[in-house]
Design a protein around this nucleic acid. Structure first.
Lengths: 211, 211, 211, 211
DNA sequence: GATGAATGAGTGTTCATTCAT
DNA sequence: AATGAATGAACACTCATTCAT
């Protein structure tokens, strides 16, 4: 079990699946096609993967995990920094930029996979991963928000505060999606990153000052 | 021609289709189910609609047109206003808010339809309507941008300028999507609207000043 | 009943049907298409024609009758002539040619219809008309045969005689089919007719002399 | 690969398909019926055959190939013989008869299949095989014709010559069709063959001498 | 005379999945 | 570890035909 032959089969299957999912999306992808392209029978596929959804997870699972880890690391670092923040202080963007740069690098390292995940996952069990990530970021940005607002704790936040933070978290994710789908290379994406940060930061201060 | 009976049949079909598309998305929706639910045979459906896609258009076409008209009206008005703008001037948000309010009202008037369009249209010929709308807005915001930047014309814009404007146009749309999918009622959405505008406007000035 | 309006409707229907049958053949022809092309509803079609097959007869019936009449006339004339025939006599081809010429003229007068009948009637009740005509000719040629052979009556014919006469009758028909489907105009067909008669006549004498 | 079970399934499918095509023709044949009759599901059919047309080819392909091979062999042999021919010579029919006999044997070995091919193939990709065969024979008989006519080459042939040769080639095929559809057994067909050859040969000489 | 609506059985085809070997 | 065969339900769509109005 797990010898070189089987590893090779799995590899061929994943390659072929990535191609098919990328071209047709999860729903229209045909397992038959994937197997034919991989030079393998359907039976073989079902030996390694429970079902279509499991195969999909096989394709996108790794990169997604990598990204999640990166984000979690970033979020805990930023929280520490937050403790040193006092209202009126100029926020140091450099750390954020470093984190975002790292994220962009991961995104482009697995460009095809993330494109599948972002625009072709409908019907699979992972069609909501991005929302999940946004939700995770929401918790983080919530803390950031009341801190910057000068609130004593999360409990002081109004319903409107919560809503706008949720949107901003979501939009943060959307920014990365946009970079991935509108830049051809990592280099190009990194070049645009700073400009987009101006927008996000501007938005944050717009919110902080006006509500 | 188009007597009460047939109108009723079409109506039942559209109701049933709306429900099915809403629950399963365009691709997984079954015409058989739709007909059964409407108490009608498949043949009847095909008397009124060319095919699955035509039925989908029947469901979403009207509201989409309504929204398009609203947006076009708004964009031409805003352009007129732009002629009076001078760098450094405080932008009057009231007109924008009025337009956005109108859009939100349309969105919530056909909430179910727009939700289908936004998240369940994959596979249909209308899967890109939102992107199309964003593109239309892009042209508009491009003009707004170089004007606010103090450029003489669109030609002075750099590649980075164009990219960021594209993103902001896209994000404008995303804002409405967010309102639609995260607010239960029109009333709630309108209440959040002002806060979100702070974000967008803040973002715009962040970009204008920093690039 | 039978006013100008209804006549016009029938005419439009027949035109449209001819076109559709010609393009797709009886089986693949769609009554829906025929009606749409004619600018008429299905109900109207069913007022004038019993069913699909009846419509087909409406299209091809007239020309077929015309051809049948022509053939019958020819066959009775030829029989009279036959009474004057004695073994060894040179057969006068002129009468045959005249008859054949007349037949070719009818065929090309309704070229499209006969092409339908010959190559696109499969599935309709008239798919065997040509065989029927061949059978009718068979009776005629049978008489001609035993006469030329010097037999006293039809009863002297062997099984082989009957078979070959059947074939020759059938082939006579096939000749006309070939002219119709391989010549563009009546003029061209008539030009080829004489050469083809050499073949048929040669065949007849080959049979008469060798069996 | 291709074990006894699967071979058996294919065999049942082909039997059942042959029966259905024979009874209803290609177009009206129902794959569902074929599968039901074969005691197999539609999925099984589609495992072995690409589509309806492929199944049809599966039924008729073998016999057609056999016939084609036979004809090609015959035509090259006859061409060699032609080199020894001088105008006025008596043509030796024995070789032709031998070839025709072989063809008839093939035809009756697969009687049902050839009947399908000749009268029930409309709509399939093989609806023109017989015409194709006739065309192949046309090339062959063209060479034979100008040789017998005493022409130096094919280029001396007139438009009328070409037309009549085309017809004779076509008629040669028609002869076999007639034998197949009007004789019950191979034995009976072979008995009639000689008589029919008298006709064809007579026809050829009629043409050669009179044009 | 003719319409517009509706029927309902039928089509070929595709699918993810299973399982004996 | 992998094959090849088979399942069976589902799919969108088309058809000739009917009939109340």
């Amino acid at each position: 079990m797990g010898n070189d032959n089987s590893r090779e089969t799995v590899e061929k299957l994943l390659m072929s699946a990535k191609k098919e999912f990328s071209e047709k999306g999860y729903m229209k992808a045909s397992l038959r096609n994937i197997c034919k392209e991989a030079g393998v029978t359907t039976g073989a596929l079902y030996f390694f993967f429970k079902d279509k959804d499991d195969l999909f997870k096989g394709v996108v699972g790794g990169p997604v995990q990598e990204l999640r880890t990166c984000i979690e690391k970033h979020m805990s670092e930023e929280l520490e920094e937050l403790d040193r923040y006092r209202p009126g202080m100029q926020v140091d963007l450099e750390d954020d930029m470093a984190a975002a740069t790292e994220a962009v690098k991961i995104l482009f390292k697995h460009k095809e996979v993330f494109e599948i995940l972002l625009t072709k996952a409908q019907g699979s069990s992972m069609e909501n991963v991005i929302d999940d990530i946004a939700d995770a970021m929401n918790k983080h940005y919530t803390d950031m928000f009341w801190n910057m607002k000068g609130y004593k704790s999360r409990k002081q936040m109004t319903k409107e505060d919560k809503f706008i933070v949720h949107w901003m978290s979501h939009d943060q994710v959307e920014l990365f999606v946009h970079l991935l789908t509108h830049c051809k290379t990592e280099k190009e994406a990194l070049k645009q990153l700073r400009g987009m940060f101006s927008y996000i930061i501007g938005g944050w201060f717009g919110v902080i000052n006006n509500t």
